[in-house]
Simulated assay, not measured.
Amino acid sequence: MAWSSLKLQLSKFAKEVAGVGEPVLVSRERDRAALEHGIDGLTKSLAHLDAPELAAESLRLSSQALERLIGKIDAEHVLDRLFSSFCIGK
């Protein structure tokens, strides 16, 4: 699927789910970063259409970024953040 076709399908889906209206203002840095990571993942997946494993991984990362945007956080992510702040072995 070409980029323009994918973009058109995603736009159509978003309009069906969220409706149409005024553009949303992104007022928080973390929201902007999540959107950028989501777009980056989609772009990378398109670049890897010849390698399905890489495309799938890029889509997974994009999905995670968009989940952070809507506030969905999984237990694994919470534990990773928690334990990354500890200094283990000292």
Score class of each variant (00 low, 15 high):
residue 5 S to L: 07
residue 82 L to V: 11
residue 46 L to F: 09
residue 49 L to F: 06
residue 68 R to K: 05
residue 76 E to H: 02
residue 24 V to Q: 07
residue 18 A to F: 14
residue 28 R to Q: 15
residue 29 E to D: 10
residue 51 A to E: 14
residue 75 A to I: 04
residue 43 T to W: 11
residue 70 I to P: 02
residue 86 F to K: 03
residue 16 E to W: 06
residue 85 S to V: 09
residue 48 H to W: 13
residue 18 A to M: 12
residue 52 P to C: 02
residue 2 A to C: 07
residue 66 L to M: 13
residue 2 A to F: 08
residue 37 H to P: 01
residue 35 L to S: 04
residue 11 S to A: 15
residue 73 I to C: 03
residue 86 F to G: 01
residue 43 T to F: 11
residue 72 K to M: 06
residue 32 R to F: 12
residue 38 G to T: 02
residue 31 D to C: 00
residue 30 R to N: 13
residue 88 I to D: 10
residue 6 L to H: 10
residue 59 L to F: 14
residue 16 E to T: 10
residue 12 K to Y: 13
residue 31 D to Q: 09
residue 5 S to N: 12
residue 33 A to D: 09
residue 41 G to Q: 04
residue 46 L to H: 09
residue 79 L to R: 15
residue 80 D to F: 06
residue 19 G to E: 04
residue 9 Q to I: 15
residue 84 S to L: 03
residue 31 D to K: 00
residue 43 T to S: 12
residue 58 S to V: 03
residue 28 R to W: 05
residue 64 Q to Y: 06
residue 29 E to G: 05
residue 4 S to L: 07
residue 12 K to E: 14
residue 66 L to N: 01
residue 34 A to I: 00
residue 32 R to D: 06
residue 7 K to R: 14
residue 68 R to P: 01
residue 88 I to V: 15
residue 44 K to T: 03
residue 16 E to N: 14
residue 42 L to Q: 00
residue 24 V to S: 08
residue 57 E to F: 08
residue 55 A to K: 01
residue 17 V to G: 05
residue 83 F to M: 06
residue 62 S to I: 02
residue 15 K to C: 10
residue 50 D to T: 02
residue 21 G to H: 02
residue 65 A to D: 03
residue 19 G to M: 03
residue 79 L to N: 04
residue 40 D to H: 09
residue 67 E to A: 14
residue 14 A to W: 07
residue 68 R to Q: 15
residue 45 S to Y: 00
residue 55 A to H: 05
residue 35 L to I: 05
residue 75 A to M: 07
residue 16 E to D: 10
residue 35 L to Y: 07
residue 10 L to N: 03
residue 8 L to C: 07
residue 6 L to V: 11
residue 32 R to Y: 05
residue 14 A to C: 11
residue 26 V to I: 14
residue 37 H to M: 12
residue 86 F to P: 00
residue 26 V to H: 00
residue 61 L to Q: 01
residue 85 S to D: 09
residue 23 P to Y: 07
residue 38 G to I: 03
residue 53 E to C: 01
residue 69 L to D: 03
residue 47 A to Y: 12
residue 69 L to C: 04
residue 90 K to F: 10
residue 34 A to G: 06
residue 39 I to A: 13
residue 68 R to Y: 03
residue 4 S to V: 14
residue 22 E to R: 09
residue 39 I to N: 06
residue 13 F to H: 13
residue 57 E to W: 01
residue 45 S to L: 05
residue 37 H to I: 01
residue 12 K to R: 13
residue 24 V to E: 09
residue 1 M to S: 08
residue 71 G to P: 00
residue 74 D to K: 05
residue 41 G to N: 02
residue 43 T to D: 13
residue 33 A to E: 10
residue 77 H to W: 05
residue 36 E to F: 10
residue 30 R to I: 09
residue 83 F to S: 08
residue 1 M to I: 07
residue 19 G to Y: 07
residue 74 D to W: 07
residue 48 H to A: 09
residue 3 W to R: 13
residue 38 G to W: 01
residue 41 G to T: 01
residue 49 L to Q: 06
residue 24 V to I: 15
residue 37 H to Q: 15
residue 23 P to V: 11
residue 11 S to C: 12
residue 35 L to N: 01
residue 60 R to P: 00
residue 42 L to I: 05
residue 35 L to M: 12
residue 46 L to P: 02
residue 11 S to V: 08
residue 55 A to D: 04
